[in-house]
Write a protein that binds this DNA or RNA. Structure first.
Lengths: 236, 236
DNA sequence: TTTTAAAAAATCGTATACCAAATTATTGCT
DNA sequence: AGCAATAATTTGGTATACGATTTTTTAAAA
């Protein structure tokens, strides 16, 4: 199962959805690294559709800042700057805190179970060492939680923020570090279930701060430093 | 001057921008009421471009919930539901509060002057009875303030929220009521300039609550009464 | 070898054309 | 006249075509 996006009708025609989903999922799973070129004709051939349809999908992806559209040049997977990364995580803290705070009435049992199920599957993926799936499921947890809150506008915003976060993880994550602390999600659900809303908010904020801190955002001017990647220093 | 959007590159190709801007501005100024049909061919002729380009603009507008795209039927200016309206205003309170709170360093003099200029022009428009321009400038104030804050992600979100708000005002505003209290904006700037951030936040939240309360959101099931709209039209 | 310039290829932007679906108008029947 | 069925028009979805721009290749000169 891919990150659930079907609940959001959003677009009238559904043909471009396949391409959109494919690129989206690939980005979420870090199979398409930032900077990768997405040629319209190539995508069209791969999916058996014309460039017109490809273009629609690309437009949507660009609007959500997942890809970058450059004039007369091929689209590329976005390479968010350090500043953008900070902004996105700040926005996530703001929105996800508000999401939890809006759950004063608590959550119905089936939804609670659904969230627990997600964390459970996530834990399994972690133990199996499937980092891609782990990341994907982590995003799904945040999205599902927001979708269960009353304010759907915030949920939609978070959609974009989560996918951008995935991109940022791909760009700035420290190579050796494992994924986010697994039980953070479980702990947050516990707090929500016990009605300890403010504690849940605090836990969420700390969780997000921790995710951001795991990124290498210091000492980086350019979105990506090639010399660093190849472990080379420019020789004179 | 239209609502400033040029600072936000956002889109690569610039051809559809004209059409996008025109619709956006018209919505902001209540010249295009909710439910208005936007025929592709018509727009294409008006702007001297082909349907391909019109389509791109419409897609963008739809993604920002300014228009609604229905399968095999003409696009229409969106008619937000009561729930959507509540959600949007709640989101605005959340985001605009955060925007102000992020201005701990204060605002440079020229930017401060720019904001004052906006409120001044707004006051003039009010005294001239130009309600459309008044509304447009009010939106511009909120957008400009957000654009001056460090977090550009929040600024972009607010872009969408403000234009949707304009739509909601068109749908739900009580007929006789005048526009939002004019000096709210000026007062907020004063508080920011004096470094009284938390007071400014409180003022903004109250301002937005007041705007929302001016709407007739009770006792309304349907988003819009079409007969009401068309009765104003002398046409056949 | 490196640099520069021109030619070739690839790729994007836009217009046009055609098909499918839906709405509107028309016709025929009761 | 009122209603139902059908024809005509409108509108949207997709594909293809062509000119414009950019990137890459090739070739020549320093």
């Amino acid at each position: 199962m891919s990150t659930d996006r079907s609940r959001q009708p959003e677009r009238s025609s559904g043909s471009d959805n396949a391409i959109y989903q494919a690129v989206f999922d690939a980005v979420m799973a870090h199979r398409l690294p930032p900077g990768t070129k997405l040629t319209e004709a190539t995508l069209g051939k791969l999916f058996g559709v014309s460039r017109t349809v490809v273009r629609q999908a690309l437009q949507r992806l660009a609007h959500e800042n997942i890809i970058e559209l450059r004039l007369n040049r091929s689209a590329v997977i976005a390479s968010p700057s350090v500043q953008e990364t900070r902004d996105v995580f700040a926005a996530r803290r703001l929105i996800e805190s508000a999401v939890i705070r809006s759950l004063t009435a608590g959550l119905p049992a089936p939804q609670l179970a659904e969230l627990r199920q997600l964390t459970e599957t996530e834990k399994q993926a972690f133990e199996q060492g499937d980092q891609r799936r782990c990341l994907q499921l982590s995003g799904a947890f945040h999205l599902r939680l927001a979708a269960l809150a009353p304010n759907q506008v915030l949920a939609r915003f978070l959609n974009e923020l989560v996918s951008r976060s995935s991109l940022m993880l791909a760009l700035y994550e420290t190579p050796g570090t494992s994924t986010c602390a697994m039980d953070d999600h479980g702990a947050i659900i516990d707090l929500i279930e016990n009605g300890n809303i403010e504690a849940a908010v605090a836990a969420m904020e700390q969780h997000l701060k921790q995710c951001e801190n795991q990124l290498q955002l210091e000492n980086r001017n350019k979105p990506i430093d090639l010399a660093d990647i190849f472990s080379l220093r420019p020789r004179s």
